[in-house]
Write a protein that binds this DNA or RNA. Structure first.
Lengths: 192, 192, 192, 192
DNA sequence: CATGAATGAGTATTCATTCAT
DNA sequence: TATGAATGAATACTCATTCAT
């Protein structure tokens, strides 16, 4: 019995997602060069050839992962929060609570942030001009005016904040039952 | 006419160190799989074959680097500091100043800490039983009694501290002109 | 759609045999060091990588060939003949006829005996304690009692006999249209 | 104290001979491809570079060995014997006694004959047109007329004879305390 | 579509040759 | 002249990619 057009498409889409999801984790853990297509396929539980039905090359699969791993949602959310009519302290607490929750419960987010961070590390010159940094710096500046955030270069502090988030994402990825950062600790990075 | 025994040994030792030093940086930046022996040799400015006069294989070179990258000095120094008859706050400030200095000026240290940290991440179960963590936790406990260090699990705090140092080592390795963590920020991770 | 389990196994077994058979000839002619995997693969008509799907290394392929090239069949057959209730002369004639036939028509045998002989040459101390030698010596002793075989150390004569067979196997391997030893000549090595 | 011209030349000649002699044995045992210059040098007890002071390349060293290993003396001697006014049987006995002696006592001869034979095996088409074969065949023909040599193709018999000598040279080279062929056995290969 | 055996370009490793001492 | 560390071309081996089934 031939499947309907719709089913067919769905099945393809599912397999593609399955590969992407698994490959993301694999690449994040091992890096590009240490990830072998054969191992990856075995890990997913499919044949090597199958990967090439969905992606032209290892390179393209990697690119796709990087593309998927953008942090637009994150940036958008951050922008929204930064524009709320609230004290900076409250904003920072909200963001930190959100981060704590995601780091603990959202594995996709953990993988994503690891990949994004590695990308950011490699594109050195633009690291500090990142939107994530800009919005965070804005909140920090607000907090400094309000006296709730420690003195210092706002971009330096934003870098400290996101760097810490990245570090714990890395830990979550590699260490079983790792001690996860709390919202309080994250907030304390910035607050007086 | 052959060189004297002494010269010979010296020359061999120098070349071995030169390879190890350069390869450390290369492996730390690129990982194992993305490091090509050919590129590495070219980067060092020697022939490919020369590497194999000093190391049996790429694998062995990598292992040698990991072996060399222990942090015994660091641990010893930390232990010494922890036993000094000083307030915990002073100890933390001393350690933080030392870290700031090393992260800024000692490239070998930066490479070493990156490698050690990756090793520690991979040996998950023992991460928190590390000597580095133990000595730091001891100082933190002292500080908590003295009221100079924030409340909370001392091992969690030690992990936060060393994780931050690792994160900035990574940054130093990848990002040109990165904003380096200050001794004040490091101290503030622990101090009230 | 994947092949059936059965087909798969058969195909793999066939390829393995094909490689072994061709490599045997190649190694026997050229020795280990002068056999290039690239040349061998080209000669077999397969890719270089294919060889490594079936054998871990050139070394292992060589060992496998040596392992396969035992002369158990030969020894068993010789033992059987030696126990027949026949005059030694008849036995020697039977064996010689068999050898003549195999040297002329059975290329696999020629390759095998060349490899086995080289193995035997390398394991010097046990050369004369070989089963092939023992059974032949027994027949020779019988013949000496019956007056049909020349006087002399039976092991020396067995060595002469098998050495001659080896020599002609070598010739067959290297010399096109070589003058092959006849059963009469082989028999005359031993018979009065 | 500078050596005289004469001494100098002598020393050079000695080293050259030493290398040639050792390399001959090494190549005869292991073949060209399995002989590594490094191993050979170590075996001789000199530095690798030293070999290149006397021979342009491994190839040239090998060629030199092959050139030295001609059998002109052997051929000349055989020709002389073949022309003596003696019965073929006597000639064969003389040659066989000579062979027995050389195989037993003259290691240089053993190495030489091994190399020459390998050369002859490789130049297939001319094997049976070799001078060694021609002179031997002539003696055999004489013997057949005199009734002292077995019937059959004289070249086939010459091949059997020299093949046997080659085989025992090989044995001598590889097998410690090998059972060496006797002059009687050699003679019996041809004589009735 | 899915598979995994086969391929060969790319990478690791060896070894004949050079050369500074 | 003799040496052996250094070199890089040649060779062994791996792994991304293809393709017959």
């Amino acid at each position: 019995m031939p499947k309907t057009e719709e089913q067919c498409k769905q099945i393809r889409e599912d397999m593609r997602s399955r590969i992407l999801k698994n490959a993301s984790l694999y690449f994040a853990r091992n890096g590009f060069g240490d990830t072998k297509i054969g191992d990856l396929a075995k890990h997913i539980g499919i044949g090597q050839g199958t990967i090439y039905l969905y992606f032209k090359s290892k390179e393209e699969l990697f690119e796709e992962i990087r593309k998927n791993a953008d942090n637009k949602d994150q940036v958008r959310n951050l922008e929204k929060v930064s524009k709320l009519p609230l004290p900076a302290k409250t904003k920072i607490d909200m963001i930190s609570a959100d981060m704590e929750r995601k780091l603990n419960n959202d594995e996709d987010y953990v993988v994503k942030i690891t990949i994004v961070s590695q990308l950011m590390l490699e594109q050195e010159e633009t690291l500090y001009e990142n939107d994530l940094y800009k919005h965070m710096a804005k909140i920090i500046r607000q907090g400094q005016k309000e006296g709730s955030v420690v003195k210092g270069d706002p971009v330096y502090l934003a870098d400290l904040y996101w760097g810490t988030v990245y570090m714990y994402a890395l830990k979550k990825l590699f260490v079983n039952e790792c001690k996860m950062v709390t919202r309080e600790t994250l907030a304390r990075l910035l607050e007086v």
